[in-house]
Design a binder for these strands. Structure first.
Lengths: 177, 177
DNA sequence: TTGCAATTGCTCATTGGTGAGATATATTAT
DNA sequence: ATAATATATCTCACCAATGAGCAATTGCAA
């Protein structure tokens, strides 16, 4: 942490932050880069079959966990409510997914793979898994697991954390309930 | 391509992959979630000042490293060529960034913070750093550093890795030069 | 029952960003 | 010098995805 230098010639400001903040900032940058770099490989892989990453994520979750409600899929792959409708529509047009009504709740719909969706996933998933593993070839499995554990902790914590608001916007919204 | 699956009742297929592939796949999912969760906090923070994450990333790099060529910024924050033009345009309209011509290369332009851009960053960056640190409060600094190191390795490796092509699309493109 | 709040999924206007090609300049080869 | 190629940025048509608002349905309470 030798960022104590003042005013550099070209007008750059040193990063001023506590050690803890610096670690977090650095991790944020590095995580963004790593995620983007790997996403590029993943996206290129599924694009060979005319799919976006979001579409593939839906197919994958339906393939590995079976049919589920649209809202459930939405929460799992983290898209907006409009997004899940849009994506399932598109996958339906492609003949890979179909909607099924839910007998116990007439508002709800299931998303499920069609036979074509099943066979497509059976065909392309192994290759996709290999692509991801290849993109992550920089570290041995043990390190990948250790890193995944840390990121899992970070992700769960950040998801549960309420959004902070700036002092100027802070307003009482009831708190509990 | 017969997957040795043990048909579950609801039609779900177990994930069939080698140990190495499983580690990579799991890390990919966990990384995506963690990144999305933290990005949500980061985006909400900068949105308070009417900025997107991409805009903030530009301001941040100019703030901390000083003026630099558009292409340099583009490579650093990982947006498309059209994207950097679009983003710098928008920041220019907001009065936070300005373009400067490059004396040694008349094709190139520098992007630099305006005084307003400088003072905005001086005002909001510390809060942003605190927001990120807060979102990453699940782990102590040491773990954050260790995780960053792994992700840095993964990111550099994945960035350098050429995109694989499926066997059906594989073509010779010369390689060198 | 009837009314009300919560939940599910859908519509649609909007947007942040992409990517192929265009333009202008620089560089290298002949 | 001329041509060919490479580089830096910009233009523009396009798109995946968002999110606020809506309609239908469910469940709960009085």
């Amino acid at each position: 942490m030798r960022v104590q230098d003042t005013e550099t010639a070209d007008g750059a400001h040193p990063v001023v932050a506590s050690g803890e903040q610096q670690s977090a900032l650095h991790l944020w940058v590095v995580m963004s880069r790593a995620h983007a770099a790997i996403a590029l490989h993943a996206a290129a892989d599924v694009a060979q079959h005319g799919l976006t990453l979001a579409e593939f994520a839906i197919l994958e979750v339906l393939y590995h966990r079976g049919a589920m409600l649209l809202g459930e899929v939405q929460r799992r792959i983290l898209v907006s409510s409009g997004g899940i409708t849009f994506l399932v529509d598109r996958l339906t047009v492609k003949g890979l997914v179909e909607r099924r009504s839910c007998p116990s709740d007439r508002r709800a719909r299931y998303a499920a793979l069609t036979p074509q969706g099943e066979s497509l996933m059976a065909e392309i998933f192994p290759e996709h898994a290999a692509t991801i593993a290849r993109a992550m070839g920089a570290l041995p499995p043990h390190d990948l697991q250790r890193t995944a554990e840390s990121l899992r902790t970070l992700g769960l914590y950040a998801s549960a954390l309420p959004e902070k608001r700036s002092a100027s916007q802070q307003r009482d919204d009831g708190g509990s309930e």
